[in-house]
Design a protein around this nucleic acid. Structure first.
Lengths: 188, 188
DNA sequence: AGCGTTGGCCAACGAGCGTTGACATGCAGG
DNA sequence: CCTGCATGTCAACGCTCGTTGGCCAACGCT
């Protein structure tokens, strides 16, 4: 019974998921092979197929992107930028899931769509809650995402030394005013 | 003779290069297959090997990243941000070369190294020319590259609709102050 | 005209991929 | 005990990939 909450194979299933998350994050979709994931999880490749159907199913199971963005409405308006940047950093460092989805999104059309969905479902509402003029919401959210994904790209995907060398608090101090301005300042 | 300036095969060679640039930009390294490139160029896959040795050689021939950054020393200091952003947009829209190298850099270790080299050889000097304190140069250059690559990622690689919808002049108007601040403002 | 060189195509190779199905093993419930 | 199902192993499939080498046609030279 697939609905049974506790199965004998749970250890295998989570081993597969963990190995898959690491591989997708490190290698992207094409180079993260089922065989390599199975090797990492110390099981047979066919087990992946049995439990997740196919490679796409495995990726879908690995990635359930929830940014868990804070409720900006309950924050002082001038602290939204800092809260967002700080939260983003924490989410990215939590595990490899966001790195995986970004890396896959760059080379895989389905991954790119998933990224768009995250943007639309999770970041746009934040901009809506903060922005005065509803007509400017997409523009301002786009600016914010360009800065935040740029940080993630250079720090967690490309790992440019100059960016990884930055201290967490310095990043927050520098980027918070940028995000704040994109969200709330008058259009230039 | 490989040094001969004009060969009978020049048309084929450039056809291969153009098809390769488009494929690498659209698909990344792994999914841009030699067979697909050859099909686009209407030649046999073995011709690619003959002229460029192997797939890596082809990629190296396609990509010779030169940002041609303006000489910031000759500019008024407060216009550097605007000049950089505007120049970056023009370079990215010129052809698919920069998109190709970014897409490849995300999934391919060799591509990532190439990106690091571009950063080090071309962007760091700009920061050096503008920055008062030499010790802060890497930090400030890292911040600039996070914003600029973030724009390129969301606009030219992921093509998030909200970002592609932005007008060129609006991007410059919004991002120029950010870059300017990262380069010249006092540390927060 | 004859010949070497260059450009191009074709068929094939070995390897790695995702995926499948047959088969062994171990654990339950009667 | 035997039966049934979940779990795991193994070998193989069809495919696509990068890459190779042999073959033919077109050209430039003397």
């Amino acid at each position: 019974m697939p609905v049974n909450p506790s199965r004998r194979s749970d250890a295998t299933r989570t081993a597969i998921l963990e190995a898959a998350r690491a591989r997708f994050a490190a290698d992207g979709y094409e180079r993260a092979t089922i065989r390599a994931i199975a090797r990492d999880a110390k099981i047979d490749p066919s087990m992946v197929m049995r439990y997740y159907g196919n490679k796409e199913g495995l990726f879908a199971a690995v990635v359930s992107p929830d940014l868990r963005l804070p409720d900006v409405a309950s924050l002082p308006r001038e602290e939204v930028g800092r809260a967002l940047v700080s939260h983003f950093l924490r989410m990215w460092e939590e595990n490899g899931e966001l790195t995986a989805i970004l890396r896959v999104g760059v080379t895989n059309p389905a991954g790119a769509e998933r990224l768009q969905k995250v943007f639309k479902d999770q970041l746009l509402p934040v901009a809506e809650a903060v922005c005065p003029d509803p007509g400017q919401v997409p523009e301002r959210a786009a600016l914010v995402v360009s800065q935040l994904l740029g940080l993630a790209l250079t720090r967690y995907v490309l790992r440019l030394p100059a960016v990884t060398a930055l201290a967490r608090e310095d990043i927050v101090a520098w980027l918070a005013p940028t995000v704040q301005r994109y969200l709330t300042a008058a259009r230039p």
